[in-house]
Design a protein around this nucleic acid. Structure first.
Lengths: 375, 375
DNA sequence: CTGAAAGCGCTAACAC
DNA sequence: GTGTTAGCGCTTTCAG
């Protein structure tokens, strides 16, 4: 009623500025700023003024302009996320978890997809930095890109690395205890009588490398033989898994069980086994790592290691935001994965098989265990 | 040599501004701006001046500040992407394709994840708009969110919808010819003697709805019976597929073939079939829709409909960018999907089976067809 | 052709 | 408590 603007409450103009609110409320623009950012500043504002400003802001449909904010050096409420490969279902899930956590703190995510390429990732960093993101999260191992790590470390925005292995490159990071996960997998297989256990590794970076190393260490500790060829290195895709399986089954003494460094590989192994007429789990046990959503629905469903993805993402986002306050804390947080037993693993075939838990019995469990249960 | 800055070419200051370059090159800041945005403006600049500015910019390691640019009303080179559910492997692949195309045009992507929730998506739009993205891409159907569509349409930034079905909501869009895809799938099954063909539908929105409708239309056209229960509606996840399969196989006359509206559902069907001891494809044929990366590695590998995802993404990005110039073109582009035949489909079982292409023969093809071939 | 100057919308001293 | 006053880095008139 007092001004023209209030006559059109339903038709807010394109960009309502603080100046508009100031005019509407009859105060200065800086007062508007102070009211609207009440939390931050310690400057007291009188009740009536605050109310008038708030009311005007609401009526005009005010929305702050993050660009202007950012320009002034303030927070942009943007989180940069660099992901090595978003097509990898594990990482797309991770991105989801991160965007969810970020949103819970009022942050948006600018996605940088490195397509697995070093130069791209480096470029991205510069893009993100230019965009004045408040912090950068790096998903997946970029250990083969020392320049990126280096630039990141020298950066003035907080950086948190996720699933980058636990070898701190001097960055804050949230990792998973890969050795524990692999041990759980091996415990499970050993308990089922397996001794000839092979390992399929993706490109040996960070997490994958740790898993590979953990396998080697544990096998050594158990004084188990790891014949030549029992550790296959392939690219981290189903096709790689299938290829590795072919190689393993062609060995003089093929394994009775295979541990895969990721579910993606395990999926390829299951596929390859089906094609070759190798029965899983009766003739061959397969364990994955990641527990992708589909891993409960493979044929047979996949025994795997599950990571606390959401917790990890939440922790990383918190660390990134905290990092805005006290930059300098090089926290490294390592969470524990857990074994999920499904149908792709069973007692070792052949003479050593105890009668009570033989393969057929395992098969009978199938229907109930289909969706997976914790050990 | 001329100034202090040139003495430290290796240590660029945190934020090199145009003013710095101006000082270095001995020109005014506005000249720097003109040189650096040569393409846009028609204002001629003398060679020597241009060179000096360019050199200085390079030496100082200048990078434009997109915030300041955006503040002035110029392009932010940001594309907002609203995706219904990024965990859906189809859409994570789509995001990848879009970010790739966007990058090719110099754009970055701000990812908004709606978690399938209407209110979230609406909020996102406002967030993205506030962020001054140059255009917004909407991935997946938001048809159940009329408010979002409405707001999007009334928006002043170009909006392009992808995989939103082909019912134009008044937005520019890139879609796939769902009817054609479903027809290809049915052609394939019909040619293999199937007559009892069921359909599993995710939530009937956009693409899914069209696929469902196409199935109904074609079955009617073929004068084929669609008994009660032959169309199952479940949530678009493997679990939904498994559940639908259970329902279908419990029917008085179960189908010999199932068309799924997405690969996700098909994966659940394959899993369910395996658990129930139903042999695919000998006893049951299964066709998916999407051709996810893993669909070539399911057990058995999945016959499905492949969409030209990369082309669609590229087209959408182009349309979004063009939309910046001539806003108002309500282009609707519909691309064609194609059938990919793998191992999950075979000749109908039972008396009708021609001897030559019987199930065992189909099995023998398995190894060679494993990775999938076009028809 | 080039420089000076005016903001874009906002935050943060600095006054009163 | 509140208003005034500078800018943040850039684009864009408007004058030379």
């Amino acid at each position: 009623m007092t001004s023209e603007a209030s006559a059109h409450p339903a038709a807010p103009k394109q960009h309502v500025t603080m100046a508009d609110i100031a005019r509407e409320a009859g105060v200065s623009q800086s007062t508007v700023s102070r009211v609207l950012n009440a939390t931050a500043s310690q400057i007291p504002i009188s009740e009536p003024t605050r109310d008038r400003v708030l009311l005007a802001a609401r009526r005009l449909g005010y929305r702050p302009n993050p660009l202007a904010r950012g320009l002034r050096g303030a927070s942009t409420m943007l989180l940069g996320v660099i992901v090595r490969d978003i097509v990898d279902p594990f990482f797309s899930g991770a991105v989801e978890a991160v965007t969810t956590s970020a949103a819970a703190h009022g942050y948006n995510v600018v996605l940088g997809h490195a397509h697995g390429r070093a130069d791209e990732a480096i470029l991205l960093r510069s893009v993100l930095e230019t965009r004045h993101v408040d912090a950068i999260l790096v998903l997946g191992d970029m250990g083969d890109q020392p320049r990126l790590i280096e630039e990141l470390r020298g950066d003035h925005v907080p950086v948190v690395a996720l699933w980058q292995g636990s070898a701190s490159h001097g960055l804050a990071m949230v990792s998973v205890d890969n050795a524990h996960g692999i041990s759980e997998a091996l415990d499970h297989l050993l308990a089922h009588g397996h001794r000839r256990i092979a390992f399929i590794s993706g490109h040996p970076l960070g997490d994958i490398e740790e898993r590979s190393a953990a396998y080697g260490a544990r096998m050594r500790a158990e004084r188990l033989d790891v014949p030549l060829g029992y550790v296959q290195h392939v690219s981290n895709e189903p096709a790689g898994g299938e290829q590795a399986l072919a190689a393993l089954m062609g060995l003089p003494v093929p394994p009775t069980a295979i541990v895969c460094s990721t579910d993606q590989l395990a999926i390829g192994v299951l596929h390859g086994a089906a094609i070759r007429g190798i029965a899983v789990p009766d003739e061959l046990s397969v364990v994955g790592f990641d527990d992708l959503p589909i891993s409960a629905f493979t044929v047979p469903s996949l025994t795997t290691i599950r990571m606390p993805v959401r917790e990890m993402a939440a922790r990383a986002v918190e660390m990134a935001i905290e990092g805005l306050q006290n930059s300098g804390s090089e926290t490294v947080e390592v969470l524990r994965p857990e074994l999920v037993v499904r149908q792709s693993t069973a007692v070792v075939p052949g003479p050593a098989t105890p009668a009570a838990t033989s393969a057929p019995a395992a098969h009978r469990r199938a229907a109930t265990l289909a969706r997976g249960t914790r050990p």
